[in-house]
Design a binder for these strands. Sequence first.
DNA 1: CATTTAAGCCAC
DNA 2: AAACGTGGCTTAAATG
Length: 334
Amino acid sequence: MPPIKETKTGYSTDVTVLEELVKMDLPEKIVPELILEHRELSKMRSGFVHPLMGAVNEKTGLIHGTFESTSTGTGRLSSRDPNLQNLPAFGQWSTRLKEGLVPRHEGNVYVAADYSQVELRVLAHLCDEKRLKSAFEDHRDVHTETASWVFNVEPELVTPELRRFAKVINFGILYGMSSYGLAARLGIGQQEAGDIINKYFKALPKVKDYVEESYKEARQRGYAMTSFGRIRPLNEVSVNPRDRGALKRIAVNTPIQGTAADIARMAMIKFFHHFEGRKNVHLELQIHDSLVCECAAEEREGIEKELANVMESAAKLSVPLKVETKWGKSLANV
DNA sequence: CATTTAAGCCAC
DNA sequence: AAACGTGGCTTAAATG
Ligand SMILES: Nc1nc2c(ncn2[C@H]2C[C@H](O)[C@@H](COP(=O)(O)OP(=O)(O)OP(=O)(O)O)O2)c(=O)[nH]1
Ligand SMILES: [Mn+2]
Ligand SMILES: [Mn+2]
């Protein structure tokens, strides 16, 4: 079938290429269709089902993963052996998989809370953009509004998948995505993509100013810095020398992603203080801007409120921090 | 034989 | 001349 994209060593067969081949509606379209289906299924089996089952400790019956505290450039945690921060979140197989991940004790449930639009709130705090701040003061959902704007659908009709795509747009543009990159991701022309980027910064003028100012500061100081003083020396980051914009994008991203990471860490500390001595409340997972804990089913309602309160008060920004809570008998619900 | 690299894909 | 950022993991091929 026709080549669409090149890699270093040959022709690309990634998901966008295969979907393009299906769209071309050639007699052989069954081939990319079957490869796509195979990719999805084998990713699930060899990427999640097998490693997760293999990670179950024989004696405890539990998965004992490792959270690394000092292995990212921005201050985020990472998770390994197995990675529990990248469990599938969309699609039927995601639900099936996570139905198998359950609390250690019968009668217990998971309670989870995730910061709402966290890096956009951090951005609003850092750049003092009026429109962004009032959006959060008015409890609005900027991701949904972006989805509604870009994809021309009523906010009520924005699906979770569409909203996830809006995050790519919101954060992508903020962190320096080009019209080329946006066009490729949206499947539109570069002109149209450029228009979207221009409108984005026109709607939020202080964001553009902030991006430039933030980069200038970082370059002068030699390091990027979060709201709480975490630093990332820029001479330690390695970038492809052919990519001239890379260092700027890193310098702009780090204070924001890093500030969100600082907040998440403070929330974890607060969690331990708050729930100290409560033997049936355990923190199980941290997924960058969310915490998942296990507790007795009877205590669920109270824990949900306490967890939300702990996280929302972990730091004080010039915009409110908000979390969304969920609970369930397996990770499929949270 | 073990380790490294490339491509690809899962998440936030 | 490349063209959001932060990670971890699997597979196959290249490298040693
Ligand atoms: N640069 C970049 N950052 C991302 C991307 N996806 C997620 N993030 C960062 C920014 C988010 O605020 C943060 C937490 O991810 P979430 O999925 O929880 O999204 P967010 O909190 O923005 O929205 P939500 O929780 O759904 O209200 O991770 C992405 O595609 N690019
Ligand atoms: Mn969030
Ligand atoms: Mn999240």
